[in-house]
């Protein structure tokens, strides 16, 4: 890719403010003048203390909420409303309890105009990719938290998105399940090559996944620093443990998040 190639996601001077209830006349600025270009296939993490606007930024990229000013474009097309070809993994798996895993995946394909056979193939493909093929006919309540979140990922991927957005997808899981799932997700994203934006509050997770970590600060929410993570992807936890370079990146990000530097 050349330096002149158009970014997959471009974020220009994006701000978000909310009207304050009551007597306050000045609106509350949740996010101020964010600029960020994200290349095709890049993995970006947004990290920062709560209130830094990282989830707000993710929701603006997804088109779920509008920007107050500035411009977000995906593949050159300005985001106004939810664009097609994005996948979203929610913090809560947000599966429909009255639908089986397979039918939950089908829900994400309803605007894709696929024939029954094509839809079936797309679903089977992503169930296999997420190792859920044996649980296609289970209702979500019968699955563990980790498997529910894998189903959420399968649903996000079933429409072959260009852009994958993840909002703290693993924060509700225990430490062991989280690490195992991190490796699985890294492998899956490595296979499909989607441009990914992850919101997380876990520095280790950000270092494990990202090409670049966007560290955000509060009041108002803004980008404090963008940190490069110079390792090939997908990674293994075993490779990062005891790696002094990884430890240096981790310490740097952590000190930024904690406001020590």
């Amino acid at each position: 890719m050349t330096a002149l190639a158009e970014p997959c996601i471009s974020i220009e001077e994006v701000s978000k403010s909310y009207d304050r209830p009551g007597r306050h006349s000045t609106p509350f600025t949740a996010l101020a003048e964010v600029n960020l270009d994200i290349a095709d296939g890049e993995f970006i993490s947004l990290i920062g203390a709560s209130g830094c606007g990282k989830t707000t930024l993710l929701r603006m990229i997804s088109g779920l909420i509008p920007t107050s000013s500035g411009r977000i474009a995906i593949k050159g097309r300005e985001v106004a409303g939810v664009p097609d070809r994005i996948g979203f993994v929610f913090q809560d798996p947000s599966l429909l309890p009255w639908r089986t895993v397979r039918a939950n995946l089908a829900f994400a394909l309803q605007r894709h105009n696929l024939s029954a056979a094509e839809q079936e193939a797309a679903i089977n493909d992503k169930l296999e990719l997420t190792n859920l093929q044996d649980f296609a006919s289970y209702y979500p309540q019968a699955l563990s938290g980790g498997m529910q979140q894998r189903a959420g990922l399968a649903r996000a991927l079933v429409g072959d998105p260009d852009v994958l957005l993840m909002d703290e997808p693993l924060s509700a899981l225990d430490a062991f399940t989280r690490r195992r799932l991190q490796e699985e997700i890294a492998d899956i994203i490595g296979k499909i090559g989607a441009t990914t934006v992850l919101v997380t509050h876990d520095v280790d997770e950000a270092v494990f996944f990202s090409d670049r970590i966007v560290v955000m600060g509060t009041s108002p929410g803004s980008v404090r620093e963008v940190v490069h993570v110079p390792f090939a992807r997908p990674r293994r936890h075993a490779d990062l443990v005891g790696n002094p370079d990884a430890a240096a990146v981790r310490d740097h990000v952590l000190s930024l998040v904690l406001g020590l530097s």
């Binding site: 809560d92 994400a108 429409g159």
Partner: peptide, 14 residues
């Protein structure tokens, strides 16, 4: 209806 399910439906352009 939980807001997260409605968000999910909007993300998949229901």
């Amino acid at each position: 209806t939980p807001a997260n399910l409605l968000d999910m439906a909007r993300v998949y352009r229901s």
